[in-house]
Simulated assay, not measured.
Amino acid sequence: MTTISRIYKEIEDHPEGAIPFVRFMELALYDEEGGYYTKSSQKIGKEGDFFTSASVHPVFAETLADVVAEMWEAGKWRAPALVEIGGGTGSLCKGMLARLQENSPKLFDSIQVVLIEASPYHRELQKQALAKWALPVRAYASLEEAAKSESLEGVVLSNEWFDAFPVHIAEKTEKGWQEVWVAKNGDSLEECLRETAPALADYLAGIDNGLPMGMRVEANMKIGETFACLSRLIRSGYVLTIDYGDLQEELYHPSRKRGTLMCYHRHQADDNPYERVCEKDITAHVNFSALIRAGEQEGFQKAAYMRQDQFLIRSGILEKAVNHTDRDPFTSQAMKRNRAIQQLIYPGGLGGMFRVLVQAKGEEASRRLRFQNGERNWGKR
Score class of each variant (00 low, 15 high):
Asn103Asp: 13
Phe165Pro: 05
Glu195Ala: 14
Tyr121Thr: 09
Gly237Leu: 02
Gly87Ile: 01
Gly362Asp: 08
Arg256Met: 08
Ile207Pro: 09
Ala18Ser: 14
Asp109Asn: 15
Leu27Cys: 04
Tyr140Val: 00
Gln372Asn: 08
Gly90Trp: 04
His267Gly: 01
Glu179Cys: 05
Leu240Glu: 00
Val156Ala: 10
Leu27His: 01
Leu82Asp: 01
Pro15Gly: 02
Ser142Trp: 10
Arg314Phe: 10
Leu357Tyr: 03
Gly379Pro: 06
Leu115Gly: 05
Thr241Tyr: 03
Val358Arg: 00
Gly214Arg: 06
Glu117Met: 04
Glu124Arg: 14
Lys336Ser: 09
Gly210Glu: 10
Phe311Gln: 01
Trp77Glu: 07
Ile169Ala: 15
Gln178Cys: 08
Tyr36Leu: 05
Val56His: 04
Pro329His: 04
Glu191Arg: 14
Pro20Lys: 03
Tyr305Ser: 04
Gly352Tyr: 02
Phe162Cys: 02
Ala303Thr: 10
Ala340Tyr: 01
Thr260Met: 02
Val286Arg: 06
His168Glu: 04
Ala360Asp: 09
Trp177Met: 05
Val167Pro: 00
Val167His: 00
Gln178Glu: 12
Asp270Gln: 12
Ala334Phe: 10
Asp270Glu: 12
His57Leu: 02
Arg256Gln: 10
Glu26Asp: 14
Leu230Arg: 06
Arg232Gln: 15
Met335Ile: 14
Leu64Phe: 12
Leu240Val: 11
Asp246Cys: 11
His324Lys: 07
Gly214Phe: 09
Trp161Pro: 00
Gly351His: 07
